[in-house]
Structure formats: C-alpha cells, structure tokens
C-alpha cells in the first residue's frame, strides 16, 4: 500500500480482500442454499443488507422461523459496530460534501474501514472520495458476485472447507490488524499490543455472558476506554513510563 489516493489505487488496495470475500461468500451461499433461499434473494440480501455476519444471522433466523422484528433487532445489534467505524472514518472526510459522505458511508464495511485506516498511515492522514469509492465499490461487487456464484455452484462443491478458503477472511483480519499496529505511528507498537491484548482478554470474559457478535461491540468500547485511561495516567506520571 502506497500514498496514491486515486480510484485506480483504491481498486488495487481492495484486491486482497477479494479472497476473503470469495471464501465467506461461498460459505454464506452454501448456508443460504441449504436454507432454500434462491440466487435472486441472495443477490438482494448481499446488495441491500451487505454485511457478512449479519447475513449469516439473518439466514439462520429465517430458517428458525423467527419473527421479523426479532431478525431486524438482531441484525441491528450485530451491525452496531459499523456506527463506531463510520464515526472513526468520518472526521477525515468532513470537508467533502454531504452527498460524498453519505455515499462513502453507505458502502463502508469492516474491510474497507480497516483498509482506510491502514491507508491514512501512509498518506499523512488524508483520504479522498475517489480512492474510497473505488475500494467500496470493488468490495461491494466482489461480495455480490461471490455470494450469488456460491449459491449457484454451492451444491456442486460440498466440501469447499477442505481447501481452507473459509479461513481467508480470518487471515485477512490478522493482516489488517498487524499492519495497523505497525503503520499507525501515533502510538508505539507496544501500546497497540497492549490495547489489542486487553481487547482479546475482554472478548474471552465477555463471551461467557454474550454471543461473539455482541461481545465485539462491548469489548471495542471498553478497550478504547481502557486505552484512553492508560494514556491519561501515563501523562500524569511520565517518570513511571
């Protein structure tokens, strides 16, 4: 990743996420297929909801014949972390028009959010709509194509897991997390490691009481607060640093 903020660079930067999307898209499509959801509904779901884990939740709740209100509430909770990500990106696009902000926000995902955070570290903390739109649209189209293709061919490859493709998205998050920790030089690596370690420990404790998707939101908020507190304490007593 370099400092180029053109649309072309956006497409180039988003390409590695294609592997993750194809892996998860295929996994999702197989679940949808076995739940009796056809390719057109899968396409609509991917285009309208456009959120990996929420689509899994939606599908499994449909299969369990949950009421619509419960499904919408669960999807809202699973996706609540998106508000945190939007809030984090938005200050860098404050100077752009409201329309640009809404367009970028509409297609923001975990992946393009993390990419933009990585990107900021090599562009002197600037982002441009051209780069963001290209990355967002690239991810959007790959996701739609991967889920529909998966729904069409899913029944033909019953053992897609054997190829390890479903792990692509986890590996991608590992890469994005590590790159974020080494390229965000506003803090030392050890500080980033401290925050990441605290959050992971919190996840273990929280998942005793709530499912993982909810725990992600709570652990992130607590982790940020703890990070703020630690930084504040160190400023108060620099000699103990």
């Amino acid at each position: 990743m370099d400092s180029d903020l053109s649309a072309k660079a956006g497409l180039k930067d988003v390409m590695p996420t294609a592997f993750g999307y194809i892996g998860v898209g295929l996994a999702f499509a197989i679940v949808a297929h076995t739940s009796g959801i056809g390719p057109i509904m899968v396409l609509l779901m991917s285009l309208i909801v456009y959120a990996g884990s929420a689509q899994f939740v939606l599908t499994s709740m449909l299969l369990a014949a949950s009421p619509v209100s419960a499904i919408v509430a669960s999807v809202f909770l699973v996706n609540a972390r998106m508000a945190l990500m939007s809030m984090t990106v938005a200050p860098y696009l404050k100077k752009e028009s409201l329309t640009q902000n809404i367009l970028i926000g509409s297609l923001l995902t975990d992946e393009t959010f993390a990419l933009s955070m990585n990107k900021l570290n090599v562009t002197h903390r600037t982002l441009r709509p051209a780069w963001f739109h290209a990355a967002n649209l690239g991810a959007y189209l790959i996701w739609a194509a991967a889920t529909v293709a998966g729904d069409l061919v899913g029944s033909l490859i019953p053992d897609a897991k054997a190829f390890g493709l479903d792990f692509a998205v986890v590996a991608m998050f590992i890469g994005l997390l590590y790159l974020q920790m080494v390229t965000d030089r506003s803090r030392r690596f050890s500080r980033h490691l401290e925050v990441a370690g605290t959050v992971m420990l919190l996840m273990f404790v929280l998942m005793r009481f709530m499912p993982g998707n909810t725990a992600i939101l709570v652990a992130t908020v607590l982790g940020c607060l703890i990070g703020m507190a630690l930084e504040h304490l160190r400023k108060e007593a620099p000699t103990h640093d």
């Binding site: 972390r81 945190l84 990500m85 809030m87 984090t88 200050p91 975990d110 959010f113 993390a114 955070m117 986890v170 998050f173 590992i174 994005l176 997390l177 974020q180 920790m181 965000d184 506003s186 980033h192 925050v195 990441a196 370690g197 959050v199 992971m200 919190l202 996840m203 273990f204 998942m207 499912p211 993982g212 998707n213 725990a215 992600i216 652990a219 992130t220 982790g223 940020c224 607060l225 990070g227 703020m228 930084e231």
Partner: peptide, 25 residues
C-alpha cells in the same frame, strides 16, 4: 475526548473480530 476515544477504535475492533474467530461461544 471523543477523537481520542476513536483513535483506539481501529486496533481495538480488529483485535475483537480476530478474538471472536479464535473462540467458540
């Protein structure tokens, strides 16, 4: 204070997503 809070979000949220993948609820 909100900007300071948000500056921790990228590493925190990615670590949380990663941890969830390592655990079974």
């Amino acid at each position: 204070w909100l900007l300071s809070f948000l500056s921790f979000v990228p590493v925190a949220i990615l670590a949380a997503i990663f941890a969830e993948e390592l655990l079974v609820y």
